[in-house]
């Protein structure tokens, strides 16, 4: 499976192109339908507040899905991802307004491994606060 990025062209510290991912209430409803996760904390403000949340929050799996795009846009072939893990450290609050929320994702090569593999460490923030921890992927390069 051909990745567009060559192992020989990257080094520890190489930064992947960073990206912003806007999230609105409509995004969450669409993700609920596609993923089958209809937990009302992701679309019902009243319910979210009743269980102690400040407002509706994004699905953690949605945040995980957009964060890895920084890697798959870089490799072109999403099949280059061999391992991917995150810790959900803080919910992404999505207010019901024009602005919604934005997840900002950065990533860099943290280690060069055997067999053309690299470890990529990711950071994801919303309102300048980390929303994912221990976020890393193992990727096969060309």
């Amino acid at each position: 499976m051909a990745a567009a990025i060559s192992y020989d062209d990257v080094e520890v510290g190489t930064e992947l192109p960073a990206r912003d991912f806007p999230i609105s209430r409509a995004t969450l409803v669409q993700y609920a339908g596609a993923s089958g996760d209809f937990n009302p904390i992701h679309w019902n403000e009243k319910f979210a507040r009743e269980v102690g949340l400040p407002d509706v929050i994004a699905h953690g799996m949605f945040t995980m899905a957009v964060a890895i795009r920084v890697v798959t846009d870089w490799t072109v072939d999403p099949g280059a991802v061999e391992e991917y893990g995150v810790r959900f450290t803080r919910p992404v609050v999505v207010p019901n307004d024009e602005r919604g929320a934005t997840v900002h994702v950065t990533a860099k090569v943290a280690a060069k491994l055997d067999d053309n593999r690299v470890r990529v460490d990711l950071t994801a923030t919303a309102d300048d606060q980390k929303v994912l921890g221990m976020s890393r992927a193992t990727v096969v390069l060309a």
Partner: peptide, 22 residues
């Protein structure tokens, strides 16, 4: 699913593009 996460990668929707990647 790809549309819901806003990802236009052709490997998710176009069989020929997926085949080109193996």
């Amino acid at each position: 699913f790809a549309e819901a996460i806003g990802d236009p990668n052709p490997a998710y929707v176009d069989p020929d593009a997926a085949k080109a990647l193996g």
